[in-house]
Design a protein around this nucleic acid. Structure first.
Lengths: 216, 216
DNA sequence: GTTGAAATTAGTACGAA
DNA sequence: TTCGTACTAATTTCAAC
């Protein structure tokens, strides 16, 4: 239910092909745009907002679902109201050769809302929601620390969630500042006229690539 | 549309009261549980799955919506299929007294999917989805670096998203390992029999509390 | 890919337990 | 409060164009 396949890949379609399954045109993107804002809109209303016929909307809606472009529909819950007022990020350093075990343990922790494997100093970032700070402390020092795969953790608390968009789409760029600013080719950005050296990019730590394969 | 009020707070209800608006009982939580798994389920089907009458389900559904416990319904899009194959985390150090400006700039960046203010070495964490690595590089070195409020950034790339749950609920704990393990009081956890020192908790950097007030 | 008409389902209102 | 029912409105499906 919550497990994502490695690399966010989709299950191979019946033909065994792995490439793009469905060419998304502008109409598809418009549909996704509406749906991520209002996941409960009727297909009839959706058709009207996108400017296509009902039957067409049904066809495309089904196609997007079947193709996996729409992964699921969900309700966003106010976690504070639901009794989980504390959010924390746990950055985890995972012991080599133990990714599989780490993933298995993760699946057994329902309080984990999100987990991503990253480049940089740490190997994974986990977001958890808990009732209070003490519960986070207990989770980290009692449960996570007892996972052999976990070499070390670093925990920070989230003080405020400034924004959360349901999902970003390519069309979002049209509303952005970059869109049509100049005719500059995207592949050849001009040298930045900015204070450099303050912007760090952190690559994978030693052996990360190998680790991922093992854990797949 | 995407702006969250500070601290995830909800708008004050007409009475001016800020406290808990709606006492969530087990039935409410069950409804939320179903809804976060299937945001498009009909209220009739919801009533059946929860085990209440349709009328009751409509009443509670509306109450949860009005109360804000359900923030919105949304479709989860496969960002890879949608053409945004690269996900990155940008950790931002924000200049004092400039939070308001930082937030304003954020609102103008549609490629930002999530932003949270955190304790620890950095001040904020931003998650972005882009078409390719070069686009991330451009975003950070051209746009973010040009924001005066941004003192420094550190960027890591997400290699794999292992899991994402729609939203964690308190009832999730029942399925967890902790539930009813012992009768131990939650407020007094026994000293952990674990390798300590590997689990770091990182508090707020200097002046963070003051910064937050200014930016609210 | 569109339109329109039939069948089904959703949403509302109300009285009773 | 919750339930059950009847009523109204809307949606989905299916057909022909």
């Amino acid at each position: 239910m919550v497990e994502m396949s490695p690399h966010g890949g989709r299950p191979a379609d019946p033909s065994g092909r792995i490439g793009i399954g469905l060419e998304l045109d502008n109409t598809h993107l418009k549909i996704l745009e509406v749906l991520r804002e209002n996941g409960r809109i009727s297909v009839a209303a959706l058709a009207e907002r996108v400017g296509i016929s009902r039957a067409n909307a049904y066809t495309r809606f089904e196609a997007l679902r079947a193709d996996g472009a729409i992964k699921r529909f969900t309700a966003e819950i106010d976690h504070v109201r639901a009794g989980l007022g504390i959010t924390a990020l746990v950055f985890v350093t995972v012991r080599q050769q133990m990714w599989k075990q780490f993933r298995a343990e993760l699946a057994r922790m329902p309080e984990v809302e999100y987990c991503a494997i990253t480049t940089g100093q740490h190997d994974a970032m986990i977001q958890v929601r808990m009732a209070d700070v003490a519960a986070v402390h207990r989770l980290v020092t009692e449960r996570m620390a007892n996972i052999p795969a976990v070499k070390a953790t670093e925990t920070v608390f989230i003080l405020d969630e400034v924004l959360r968009r349901p999902y970003v789409l390519p069309t979002d760029r049209d509303g952005g500042r970059d869109a049509g600013r100049t005719g500059r080719r995207p592949a050849a950005p001009e040298p930045a006229e900015v204070p450099l050296g303050k912007m760090r990019f952190v690559g994978a730590a030693e052996g990360r690539a190998a680790l991922r394969k093992e854990g797949g």
